[in-house]
Design a protein around this nucleic acid. Structure first.
Lengths: 214, 214
DNA sequence: CATACGCGTATGTGATCACAAAAATCGAAA
DNA sequence: TTTCGATTTTTGTGATCACATACGCGTATG
């Protein structure tokens, strides 16, 4: 029943918004990177007006910050802010996973396993952006089953705010395999173990935080 | 260290945004109410451009919805959506209250008591908007102590989405006194009872939902 | 060599306009 | 009276422009 607008008729500001949002969420833009409206407009082939709307929207979602003079940049998050956002991820994603559990059939689990196997590839290539994208896809695949669009939207907003920082974090990471907690998540899904699932998701989400302390 | 911009130099779109946002959050606009950019512009004394930016931003936050043709209106929430938003309120506000508890000294509790006493007045006047505003002020006063701006922002976004619906809900309510759970919240704060506080906040936040079932 | 000043350029803001599409209005026919 | 269709009006979109201001760089001065 969703009325999806055809891509070729999507408004200009939506194209800019989606393009920028994806880049930010996947960590393709470093923290503190400056952006200009004319630059965005030229890049996406539109005038300043749609670029401004897209930027304003991303500022409202915390994906960009705007100085008092109106200059745009990706935010450099303080450690306190990162802790807060990780706590929000834990709260919301545990709830989403819990709601998805009763509907998580074998087909879904297999799809998640496939995605998780793909993480090994991007990890071996030292591809930080690919790692973030695949990791988020793993989580989103599960959460979509929760049938909770408002919660998922909030969750993605948090991902968005963490995007530039995640790149920095995962860039430091010397990882050789997919996250260990992903296997725990999959195991808990298969056995229908709700407490185990909640713990596994919480651990997976907050593990990145521990790298900050070191 | 916050660099607050003086109000008299606030940008036009910020004035429109704040004005509209307050109205929506406090339930001054009924669900399904239509809005036009030119109308908003005229009302706030600005051209269409700032009105559009403010509207886009509120759409991004879920406070307004936009039809495929670009028409603006306050959303009419389904029961499932309301349940979801109430669950989000419960998740986030319980966490905020828990974080505020160690910092909630007597002065803060007294301030909250004063606000809560004010609820009796607006209730006796059958003032739905005043009730919502005062109720939210009660909660925000506590949550500000949590020192968690990202969480508070998410929380307020949920309030915003529920604004038009809250008016409808509380409009039906035949209430003669302040919410019972507010007293429990205050008692738990005074005694430093964290489990009791979490339960009281969760109950207060989800109580409105029960009116839907009836 | 460091710092402060000043000028030129880059940048965001808000108003206005032309255009297309949707909604509303009015009239005619069944 | 109702319903369908054409026309008029309303509305959102995106481009462009003038303007004010902030930034950056070069120069001069201590």
């Amino acid at each position: 029943m969703h009325s999806l607008r055809p891509l070729e008729t999507a408004s200009a500001h939506d194209r800019v918004y989606r393009g920028l949002r994806t880049r930010i969420m996947h960590g393709q833009i470093a923290p503190g990177q400056a952006l200009t409206l004319r630059g965005l407009g030229k890049e996406f082939g539109v005038s300043m007006t749609p670029a401004r709307e897209a930027a304003q929207r991303l500022v409202a979602e915390g994906a960009l910050q705007m100085s008092i003079s109106g200059r745009l940049s990706t935010p450099e998050l303080s450690n306190e802010r990162i802790e807060e956002l990780a706590a929000l991820r834990a709260l919301i994603e545990v709830e989403l996973a819990s709601r998805a559990l009763p509907r998580a059939h074998m087909q879904l689990i297999e799809r998640m396993q496939n995605i998780n196997n793909g993480i090994a590839d991007v990890v071996s290539n030292r591809d930080a952006v690919g790692y973030i994208r695949t990791n988020l896809e793993f989580h989103r695949t599960l959460y979509l089953r929760a049938q909770a669009p408002a919660m998922l939207a909030m969750c993605e907003t948090v991902w968005l705010q963490l995007g530039p920082t995640m790149r920095m974090l995962y860039g430091r990471l010397r990882r050789t395999e997919a996250p260990q907690y992903h296997r725990l998540i999959l195991a808990a899904l298969q056995s229908g173990d709700e407490p185990g699932l909640r713990l596994a998701v919480r651990s997976d989400v907050t593990q990145g935080l521990r790298m900050l302390a070191s």
